[in-house]
Structure formats: structure tokens, C-alpha cells
């Protein structure tokens, strides 16, 4: 499969995502510079983490006006797989590809640590390598991961299995004690209505190899590759 990693000025997980896709998963991968207004020949796009445009004004607010974004939106509308990780998730929110918005962490501090996630829907392009309700460990690293949306949107997300990951305890317990940033309904990752665009705060590329202390992130990229293969077959 051919992945594209979109690079904005200030992206800093672009090389990490590239490594996770190309070296760890063995897929084709290319960087896509934010000035590019055409995207062709890709099976999946990654919007990586970082501080695009310094996260000035609001996280993702300036990046969403990059020349590449209309092409990303088109790619998504045509059913292409898009995963936005951390800052990538924030950009997808600002661009309107996903509903809701990000607030500062409840603690008002940047938090970098491993967290447990519960896989709430394993019947998706991003989670098919996990069991339903499986608890996985993936690190977070963000200052603004406190997801917010209005009650109607939340109902919509819940009813349609669009919340893929919830923060939880080691045994899958869901509650405030296990929510690192105060996000609504303990949301860690959601998809769009069509299910082909995922935004998640945790960083799967940081735990795709055992040398980094965990391999649960591997399953997310592997799910995408598996889904793309099946779609082709």
C-alpha cells in the first residue's frame, strides 16, 4: 500500500509516522509537503502530530488553511483512509472533517505518558486487528486533548459506533480516574460518519516496536493495511 504523510511547518511526528509505516510495516510511504495542492496515487494519508504553525491562535487553526487541505478533504470524500494523530486530529477538527473541538487539558499541563484505551468498535478500517473491548496501551503527548462536542453530536458518535477509543484503566474500567485530559465521555479517538477518517490523540507510531516498550500501535497501522487489502480483493 502507498501511504502519504502530510508535513506542515511545525509537524514533528512526520518522520516517526513515516518510520512506522515504511520501516516497521514495510509499506510504501512518501512525505506530502503542505504546499502541494494535488494528491494522487495514495491509499492512505497520515496527518502527523506536532505543533503546526506553532499551534498559535488555536491548535490546527492555521494548518487547516494550508494548500494541501482541500486535497485532503477531497481524498477523504472519495473514501480514502485518513488518520490524524494528535495535532493531526486537531487539524481534522478545524478542517471540519471530524466534528467537535479540542480544549486545553483539564490539568492545564502538557502530558506525556502511556495510557490505556478500550477499543469500543473493532469493525472499522483502523481497529480490525483488535478484539472488541480489548484494552491496549498507547502513549499520549499533548497539551490540548480535551475533546468537546455538543450533546447531539455526542449522541450521534455514540449511537453509530464512531467512538473507536475511550481512555480507561488497566482492566478496562472507564471513569474520571482514568481520563488523562478531561475529554468528554473519555473520548480518545473518533471517526467521521463514513468511517474512513480517524482522529486520535494517542500516538500509535510511538509503540509499534518492542524497543519502545510496547507494540499496540502496530495494530492500528496493520488494521489499515489489512482493510485496504480486503477492499482491493
Amino acid at each position: 500500500m502507498r501511504f502519504g504523510v502530510v508535513v506542515f511547518p511545525g509537524s514533528n511526528c512526520d518522520a516517526d509516522c513515516y518510520h512506522a509505516v515504511k520501516d516497521v510495516q514495510g509499506q510504501d510511504c512518501e512525505y506530502i509537503w503542505h504546499q502541494q495542492s494535488k494528491i494522487t496515487g495514495f491509499d492512505a494519508l497520515v496527518l502527523p502530530g506536532g505543533f503546526s504553525y506553532g499551534d498559535y491562535l488555536r491548535t490546527g487553526a492555521i494548518a487547516r488553511f494550508s494548500p494541501v487541505m482541500p486535497a485532503v478533504v477531497d481524498f477523504a470524500r472519495q473514501g480514502g483512509l485518513v488518520i490524524g494523530i494528535c495535532n493531526g486530529f486537531q487539524i481534522l477538527l478545524e478542517a471540519g472533517l471530524l466534528p467537535g473541538a479540542m480544549l486545553r487539558n483539564k490539568s492545564l499541563k502538557f502530558i506525556c505518558k502511556p495510557v490505556n484505551l478500550k477499543v469500543l468498535n473493532n469493525d472499522t478500517p483502523f481497529t480490525n486487528q483488535f478484539n472488541q473491548d480489548e484494552v491496549i496501551e498507547i502513549p499520549i503527548a499533548h497539551g490540548e486533548g480535551n475533546y468537546y462536542c455538543d450533546p447531539a453530536t455526542l449522541g450521534e458518535l455514540k449511537d453509530n459506533g464512531r467512538i473507536l477509543f475511550s481512555y480507561c484503566g488497566p482492566e478496562g474500567q472507564i471513569g474520571d480516574d482514568h481520563n488523562p485530559n478531561g475529554s468528554l465521555n473519555h473520548i480518545a479517538g473518533i471517526t467521521n460518519k463514513e468511517g474512513n477518517v480517524l482522529g486520535m490523540m494517542p500516538h500509535p507510531e510511538r509503540c509499534s516496536e518492542s524497543v519502545l516498550g510496547g507494540t499496540n500501535g502496530y495494530g492500528i497501522f496493520a488494521s489499515m493495511i489489512n482493510w485496504l487489502k480486503e477492499a482491493r480483493a
Partner: peptide, 14 residues
């Protein structure tokens, strides 16, 4: 004001 500078550049781009 790094933030102001970045916003200014972005407004120019727009």
C-alpha cells in the same frame, strides 16, 4: 509576539 507573527503570515496567505 511569535503568535501574532504566525497569524499575520497566515492572513497574508489568505
Amino acid at each position: 509576539d511569535p503568535q501574532g507573527e504566525a497569524v499575520k503570515k497566515s492572513l497574508h496567505v489568505l
